[in-house]
Amino acid sequence: MVHVNKYIVFIVTSIWYIAACDDTSQRGIDSQEVKQEIRNREIKYVTQPQIIDAAFKRGSQITDTLQQALTRQMQKAVAEKSLTEAAAYCKLEQLEAYKQLQEKHTASIKRVRLKAPKADLLLNEMEKQLLDAYQYNQENKLPLENNVQKSGAEEMLFTAPILVSNTVCLKCHGKVGTDLSGEEYQTLQATYRMDSLVNYSLNQPIAIWSILFPRKGLIKSIQAE
């Protein structure tokens, strides 16, 4: 009796499938579209190089977007406010794009000073190692490049140098006595502790981006493409 039931179910299912195909043809639906939909629903195997590439591309896009947004924000602040007031706007937390990108990618986005990073800034072991590597390269005048590394079992870490990329940056981070006056420096120092953030030149690295991506999120986004 069990075998008969299975057989009946198979016959009914087959008839339904044939009928559905006939109905699809009658409605003029392209069979190629149906095949493509089936392929889209198949589970895609994702390789480690694909995950690295995805982290690299997303990290680069995020840092480009945030850097451009920060530049626009600082240009506006410097034009409308005093230098000390404007400096308060050089924070990721002031950017709507920062919140949106963290939520979109379920990512942790940080900026880390190359000189004397904040003591209360929490970095994992891989972030510390890469920060050391960037600091070494800067001190020895070696190139600083974008990088992706596996960070533990569950995350991928994207890092990239942050440069003093325009003259607006020099207003706070440039050479004391040239780009900003001694009085301006003293005022900024009293408010923001600028010790390690002054006397930079244009296009000189001042910090790094550190972005942690969940591997599962990267895999899911690759499979959806």
Rank of each mutant, 00 (worst) to 15 (best):
V2T: 13
V4F: 13
N5P: 05
K6L: 15
V9T: 13
F10W: 04
I11S: 04
V12L: 15
T13V: 11
T13W: 08
S14M: 14
I15E: 04
C21S: 03
D22E: 03
Q26G: 05
S31E: 06
Q32F: 05
E33R: 08
R41M: 11
Y45L: 13
T47V: 10
Q48R: 11
P49R: 01
D53K: 08
F56M: 14
G59F: 05
G59W: 04
I62P: 10
T63W: 00
D64W: 09
L66F: 06
K81Y: 08
L83R: 04
A88E: 01
A88L: 06
A88N: 01
C90F: 07
L92T: 03
Q102D: 04
H105N: 13
H105F: 15
A107D: 01
I109N: 07
R113W: 14
K115R: 15
P117S: 05
A119V: 15
L121Y: 07
L123V: 09
E125C: 00
M126I: 14
Q135G: 07
Q135S: 05
Y136F: 12
Q138R: 10
Q138S: 08
N140T: 11
N140M: 08
L142I: 02
P143K: 03
N147V: 08
N147Y: 10
Q149V: 15
G152A: 06
G152C: 06
A153D: 09
E154D: 12
E154Q: 09
T159D: 00
T159C: 02
T159H: 05
V168C: 04
C169V: 01
C172A: 04
K175M: 09
L180C: 05
G182R: 07
E184G: 11
E184T: 09
Y185C: 06
T187L: 15
A190H: 07
Y192K: 02
R193Q: 14
V198R: 03
N199I: 10
N199V: 10
L202G: 00
K220Q: 15
K220P: 00
I222T: 03
